[in-house]
């Protein structure tokens, strides 16, 4: 039973990690590419970390919770880096399939 649960978690994690990178390679413009790695990959690695916590808890007969630390870190940092990347791309006026926001104050100012 535990084995089955572990296998499902590992497989889900690996598939999501793969889909995140597939999105990175396949989608058309930078802003849509940003979505794949931020969401799919984060959940994928989250699944793998839960699997790891479960595996070491069962094997050593205690609770192994330090994997929570990495997932917590990942869930806090991945939106921050996505936000910064989007900001940098808006600043550089990277091409987009959607119309870029045009109102004053809606995009980062040009640096002097």
């Amino acid at each position: 039973m535990n084995d089955f649960l572990l296998s499902v978690l590992i497989l889900t994690g690996a598939i999501f990690t793969f889909i995140g990178s597939l999105g990175l390679a396949r989608l058309q413009d930078f802003y849509t590419r940003l979505h794949g790695p931020t969401k799919a990959t984060t959940l994928g690695v989250g699944c793998l970390l839960i699997a790891s916590a479960l595996y070491f808890s069962i094997r050593d007969g205690g609770v192994s919770l330090h994997e929570v630390l990495v997932s917590l870190f990942l869930f806090i940092t991945s939106p921050v880096s996505a936000h910064l990347l989007a900001k940098a791309a808006l600043h550089l006026r990277v091409k987009s399939l959607a119309t870029l926001p045009t109102q004053k104050g809606d995009t980062p100012p040009k640096h002097p």
């Binding site: 802003y31 979505h35 931020t38 969401k39 991945s78 939106p79 104050g105």
Partner: peptide
Amino acid sequence: ANTISLTPGTVSAWLSEDRRTLI
């Protein structure tokens, strides 16, 4: 902003200078 980035199909990209609008 972090919540928006992690939930369905949205990534927060820019907070306007006057902190009133999120793009």
